[in-house]
Design a protein around this nucleic acid. Sequence first.
DNA 1: GACCTGCTGCGGCCTG
Length: 716
Amino acid sequence: MTAFDLLSEPIRKYIRDQRWESLRKIQEASIPRILQTENNYVIISKTASGKTEAAFLPILSKVNFKERGVKVLYISPLIALINDQFVRVEKLCEYLDIKVTKWHGEASKAQKDHLIKNPEGIVLITPESLEAMFVNRPYNIHHLFSKLDYIVIDEIHSFLGSERGVHLKSLLSRLQQANENRFKVVALSATVSDVNEYAELKDYLGNSEDTKIIRDNTPKPINVIFKYFPGPVTELPLDLLKDLYVRTHDSKVLVFPNARGRVEEVAVKLKMISERVGGHKNYFSHHSSVDKEVREYVEFFAKNASLQNFCISCTSTLELGIDIGNVDEVVQIDATNSIASLIQRVGRSGRREDKSSNLCLYSTDKWSLLQSIACWLLYTEKYIEPIQVTEKPYDVLLHQILSIVKGSSGLYLVELLDKIAKNPTFSNITEIEVKDIINHLNQIDFLEKLGNEYIIGVEGEKVVNNKDFYSLFHTPTFFKVSSNGVKIGELPLTPQVREDENVYLSAKIWKIKYIDFESKKIEVIPAKDGRKPLFLGDAADTAHLIREKMLEILFSKEVYDFLDQVGQLVLQYFRVELSVFKVTNVKKQRPLLNSNDNIFFYSFAGSQINKTICLLFEEIGIDYRYDESCSIFQFKHSELDLLEKIKATKLNDDQINQILYKHLERNPSMINFSKWGAYLPLRFQAEILKNKLYNFDECFTFLNKIDYVFNEHDVD
DNA sequence: GACCTGCTGCGGCCTG
């Protein structure tokens, strides 16, 4: 029997009505497996290869929807993705008379109420909405979701390795605890590459024995072009913009310039060039600080612009699977911080099966060029940075303790401990540690003991009853920008934000007329000339793998024909510049440049290792400078012996803790990258720092492994 | 110079 024959008749009719010539490879593979086994599956396949159908065609054929209760729960990281998938899944479900309900913060209340009256069919939800239900309406969890057959998790890679992912893992376990029968999980992803990560994925889905991987490895042809236009960080070179304009004026393009300020710069300046030469007007910007309705309009325009060209300058907001239709070319300005990101971005072009992807990588300095080459080579070698596993997610545990207690009407300690013990998310955290955290929450009035039962305490109520409770990530508050009642976006309060200052936002130029500090609002009017907006933020971490590859490229003789002529020359000069070091083994050796009074240490190490080295320098009292963009440390020649000293240092766990306590006491805000970590006892905060911000194990392994290679002759 | 993600309940106002 073919995969098609295995499907139920209504589904086959749906396929015939769609006039599909055949099923996609990934669907052929998934249909018999999902239909004929009770396993969990991870479906890995390229963007737009029919993954959603690969999951839903067999699930809808298999599941008995006659029984009362929601049978399939689809979980997505984005509201926009839920709205897209709703249209697709509902169309499919019309053939089977199955109800599909959206459940997220912007979904209709009436539809939600209707579902509560008639719990049935399929629900599309976000992790945060699920959390909110556990907290505020725990009986609805049971009422709606205790008869689940399948859970589908979309874009699973966006959860792996993040606190949000740990949060979801905990919610999945709590859902399983509310179900009499074991539900199956089908996870979808475009970017899981290394076979080593399968174990991680299987563990994530909670049942490694019964979890299988289905993947389509068919390569997709990609045309890649590298272009080099040197310029300062502050402003993009005009030549680059002109070149970009000429390349893209008669096609559909996504440009990824890595930062919101630069996104605006690209959108506004390309639009100005286009106006001057009479090109199309469809230049947009798309990032988290562009007003939501404006962003939705941009997405709508792109999806429906079959006859019109457009150019959207964007951040990672357009990285995940939101449907914006077909794009001819993807442009990356300066290197991505991860290979995963590069994969997602490349996947946005050439979405049709017969079309190849087009990628153009611009660089504005030699380090960025080097990083771009590294990411590209690793991409072609099918590497992805490893997933960061949190062994002991104390901060998520603290949040989940509050959630469990709030969702109950008083809980004995044994009951609370039992619920946590049953949740594999926290299996590496000991019962003693859990009790410590509960006691601490009691002390700071987040929990309170009423008789022998725990309830939420006075301080806890403030936190738990706030709408900010449901997520595991921070969002800064910005000033809302509008013009004459029309919402445009938002800006952080930087020195740049002053009355009469002109600024770019939403691909337009504005003059700031009035700032209302009380209500955090900015009123603007259109203007002719201005500057790109400044956003506060930290650079994303760069993986060790990428930095190591950069060193490898510098000390290899390989000629890359994908580079343009200037790029070839820049790389050649760069190699000559570093040839003063006789590096023969890139795994073990690191350059140390002796120049006048200063030493430059080229660590070529991942951001976490470098941050840990910074902490060690501070601890020893070395006066140093560190540049994250090129992974270089600079310090006085007189400190040279200290580098050897650090190398010889083997701090034990206790010593590391003492250092971290000292830093935390001096600067408590250093834990703030973890939203809930700030409420933990100090020693748990130190553990979070040790595993998330720093990495002492890898840092010492790295330092012990490497030999310093000095320059052979003097350099000015 | 530096990414992104989500959101309950309730009171109050408006419209049909």
